[in-house]
């Protein structure tokens, strides 16, 4: 089996960082597509999300392939853990999440959510989703927004009302519950979207850049909330560009680049900062040079 140092093209560029890595951090290099799990005892908890050799190729109108967004990705997210999907822009994170949510169909491979296809109503009933941007209906009030998503989640009317009150209080928007969300600030809209994701009492919460657009206080609150939800037994799949946040809230992370997994493992077993590790694994700087500007 190929060693990390030989497989990683960034080895010479970040020698200090690479040496700082602990060998028990599970790594899978994209070329071989074989996972090398070096540490951590096998987890007994059942898998909530299971992806096996998933591929996604976008095609044009004439069905000619245009972009290979995900290439042979396999991952599993266990019950009760916070799993971080990390990677640079265009690495396939959002496509992977959309396939997990059933919004996109994979070109190949298998995806299961709670042991069912992602588009099965039984799977969706147990799912909450916070997209990268809030995408709320601007003409609805915060209360109506939660009521609408409670209705879509088939929550009985009385329970929906109680849960709406509870969640609005939790995200600190009780006072503005009857104001249209179109007039909300980005942070307030984000909090409504987070409450909407939780309205159906999900077992799995998918967070796409959960702290995007939030001020430091709100970011801290979101992180506290994620920790609290994890403590309550909820499984969480999250993507983030803020690696310090990911390191703080995630149990395990997977780093994607060019649609394939380049590293996967437990954050607790990472002997360095996630940011350093990430930069070591994913360095596309060769595609982007400042030399001509600096020379000028």
């Amino acid at each position: 089996m190929e060693t990390l140092e030989h497989a990683d093209p960034n080895y010479t560029k970040f020698p200090a960082r690479r040496r700082a890595l602990r060998p028990d951090f599970a790594i899978m290099c994209g070329m071989e597509k074989t996972k090398q799990t070096l540490g951590g005892a096998p987890h007994a908890a059942p898998n909530v999300i299971e992806l096996t050799d998933v591929r996604k190729t976008f095609r044009d109108f004439w069905l000619r392939p245009t972009v290979k967004a995900v290439d042979g990705l396999s991952l599993s997210v266990r019950k009760g853990e916070v799993f971080g999907l990390l990677g640079p822009n265009g690495s396939g994170k959002s496509t992977t999440i959309k396939m997990i949510l059933g919004l996109l169909s994979p070109s190949g491979g298998k995806i299961s959510l709670f042991g069912r296809p992602p588009r099965a109503a039984e799977a969706r009933r147990r799912l909450g989703y916070l997209p990268e941007l809030s995408y709320l209906h601007p003409f609805l009030t915060a209360q109506e927004t939660l009521g609408y998503y409670a209705g879509l989640s088939d929550l009985p009317r009385a329970e929906a009302k109680a849960r709406t009150r509870e969640l609005l209080a939790m995200v600190g928007l009780s006072d503005v519950a009857k104001r249209p969300v179109g007039g909300f600030s980005k942070g307030m809209a984000r909090r409504v979207a987070l409450a909407a994701a939780l309205i159906g009492k999900p077992d799995l919460l998918v967070l796409d850049e959960p702290t995007s657009g939030l001020d430091p206080i709100s970011t801290k609150e979101v992180k506290l909330l994620v920790k609290a939800l994890r403590a309550g037994g909820m499984t969480i799949l999250t993507t983030s560009h803020l690696l310090a946040d990911a390191q703080e809230i995630c149990d395990r992370v997977m780093i994607l680049n060019h649609g394939a997994c380049v590293a996967e493992g437990k954050v607790s077993e990472l002997g360095t900062s996630l940011e350093d590790f990430f930069l070591a694994k994913v360095d596309d700087a060769k595609d982007f040079t400042l030399a001509p500007f600096l020379a000028g």
């Binding site: 059933g102 969706r124 995408y135 209906h137 998503y149 879509l152």
Partner: peptide, 14 residues
């Protein structure tokens, strides 16, 4: 186009 449909389609609604 405004991606609001995503939030509806991930719910158990046909």
């Amino acid at each position: 186009a405004e991606k609001r449909l995503q939030l509806t389609l991930v719910r158990p609604v046909g």
